[in-house]
Design a protein around this nucleic acid. Structure first.
Lengths: 353, 353
DNA sequence: GGGCCCACTCGAATCGATTCGGCCTACAAT
DNA sequence: ATTGTAGGCCGAATCGATTCGAGTGGGCCC
């Protein structure tokens, strides 16, 4: 086999073969501009003969100034991010929102300066970026984006800059849920929170841990719960998963003498885990234990209709996408605050006396 | 606010300000090449003063001929793909395998010519591509990639071309699992398969449906099961999910007079759904019903230790990534066939007589 | 038959950075 | 002191396509 010396044909080659100029050939491909049908056909034929696969995206994007790619910055590694249904829904919403752009989604992680010459947020050919979740080191990324003039939107993460934020009323929503529990008569309430710090420390909620919290979502929801139950004890989970909820649930429920009548979980997955723990321990939900979730996702395999704060994850993603579309069109995009609604299912009831 | 007339500074601007040539400034940034420390510092300083955010990725990729992006082609829309843990694991493996490249992952879907001017596989600035799953219209994509000279690897999808495939022994593995069931004494066995055609038709397995099957994975696994239980009845699910498994399970188990003693599911999620259906109907697993899965994922929330064919999803992804790395380095990459192992859990037992 | 307009095509500049060969200078060796 | 050498820096070509203004031919209308 002769070495792959065969240089791939370029638009110029095609044009030459078709007997037209490069500019005409370009027009024939992009469709914009007046080109006679005969000429176009000739160009296309030449392209086929030469095995030309269409304009090089790299050159095209340089010239056009747009790459047709939207970046999504996740704070975790790929696997972790996609284990969370909320993130997936959000991502799906984004892809829906940017559909008019016909752009691809480039996954980027925020994991430090990454290994080696990684294509980080600083050197990715993206037209716009969605930042998901907040991260301490986001500041740097945002600065780079600003300098590059790349439009960005943040979902659930205040950046401190002037980039639009898509969020929900984490604090108020949780407060509403907590108030509902109080109205039912609960006073012995425990909390299971999302990770509070970047290290995802698992363990008891301490004043210290709460103070040093760096993740806005968890902090806000915690504040909402605390507004109603100031002294509730609780645990911080290391992730949003059934597994973590199960573990937290076991810890919170194992001591019969000192058992809460209700548990506020900061995500549906955690809530599902808590319910599973209760079942393991023979504790009836909701008769003996009320459980409140957050998200409003359908937990595959959960038998209950979870009482939870439904947030429109897909809509959030879509709003982010649409905001980007608007920004790319030169308009000014604004922050959007969604509201979550309390869905009352069958996992909450008055406490047993 | 004056219109955004402020043109972003280019490398040339920085060079001018630093009093050096563009070429020198370039070297100062990329680090390759001899540049005195003093000069480099001056360039960097000038860059800071001008708010220069580093070389434009578009121009760089045109010149260098590489974009630092690897495409992942999924056969479904984003949401659907990420509901499947196996896909997620695979994706994670890919990102691990291509780590040496420091490349980003660009999500592409294979959904026809997409809407509008979408950045499809035909016009994405990717250095390499991983094709996940096989799809009838993959042929076209493969052709485009070949013409473009973009290295590609296929995971579980024979392309008919000379691109490397990463796969497992779907047929033999399933056969081994089926044989195990037969050894236990089962003869009344039903099947729950993954979607057999592109339309994801849900319903009874018919000769017709099996013949027209277009998805290799499902077909192979089916063949493996049929090698042991040629006349097993079964259902095709519309997706790999607990929900679908639940539905299929209900259908297969609802008639007490005509109930299988074992069910072979083509994925763990389906198996989990089947088990749930059994529980609903008061059928004990494994005493009254044995269930065999496929994948070896941890189904969040499943109480059982599923008997299943464990496939190394992450390793498959990693192998694909590594193959790409090798191909990009000019080496020839070869297909890799992994083997799955039968994990015997607590969901299979001899049939009750 | 002449003038005008339209439709199509072409040239050339441009997008922004990279890279290779050459050149210059300063220092070292003889 | 002269030549050799190497480190540093610069010029210019190049990557491949797009785009806009200019040019040209033919057809149409009067």
């Amino acid at each position: 086999m002769q070495t792959d010396a065969a240089p791939r044909p370029t638009l110029a080659d095609v044009a030459a073969r078709a007997g037209v100029s490069a500019s005409t050939a370009s027009l024939a491909f992009s469709g914009s501009g007046p080109v006679s049908d005969a000429t176009k056909a000739r160009v296309l034929a030449a392209a086929t003969e030469l095995g030309y696969a269409g304009p090089d995206p790299r050159a095209r994007s340089l010239r056009r100034g747009r790459s047709g790619i939207v970046g999504v910055v996740l704070e975790e590694r790929v696997r972790a991010a996609f284990l969370d249904p909320v993130k997936i829904q959000t991502l799906d919403g984004i892809s829906e929102g940017i559909a008019p752009l016909g752009a691809g989604l480039l996954l980027l992680t925020d994991t430090g300066e990454a290994g080696g010459q990684a294509v980080g947020i600083e050197s990715a050919p993206v037209d716009a970026v969605v930042l998901i979740g907040c991260s301490p080191r986001l500041g740097h990324s945002v600065e780079v984006l600003r300098r590059r003039g790349i439009p960005a939107v943040a979902i659930e993460g205040q950046t401190g800059e002037d980039i639009p934020e898509i969020s929900i009323d984490n604090r108020n929503a949780t407060r509403r849920g907590a108030e509902y529990l109080r109205e039912l008569g609960h006073s012995q309430v425990s909390l299971v929170t999302l990770p509070l710090d970047a290290e995802r420390t698992r363990g008891r909620l301490t004043a210290e841990l709460e103070r040093d919290s760096t993740t806005a979502v968890a902090t806000e929801r915690l504040a909402g719960a605390r507004a109603v139950f100031p002294d509730a004890t609780g645990l911080a989970a290391a992730a949003s998963s059934i597994e973590e909820g199960l573990e937290a649930g076991r810890a919170l429920l194992s001591d019969p003498a000192n058992r809460p009548t209700a548990i506020i979980a900061q995500s549906d997955l955690l809530a599902a885990g808590v319910i599973q723990a209760a079942e393991e321990l023979g504790i009836a939900v909701p008769r003996e234990l009320s459980v409140l979730g957050f998200d409003g996702i359908r937990v595959d395999g959960l038998q209950h209709d979870l009482t939870t704060l439904v947030q429109p994850s897909v809509a959030k993603g879509r709003a982010a996408g649409e905001a980007l579309v608007r920004m790319l069109a030169g308009e000014q995009a604004v922050s959007v605050a969604f509201v979550s609604t309390l869905h009352i299912g069958d996992t909450t009831a008055p406490p047993r006396h």
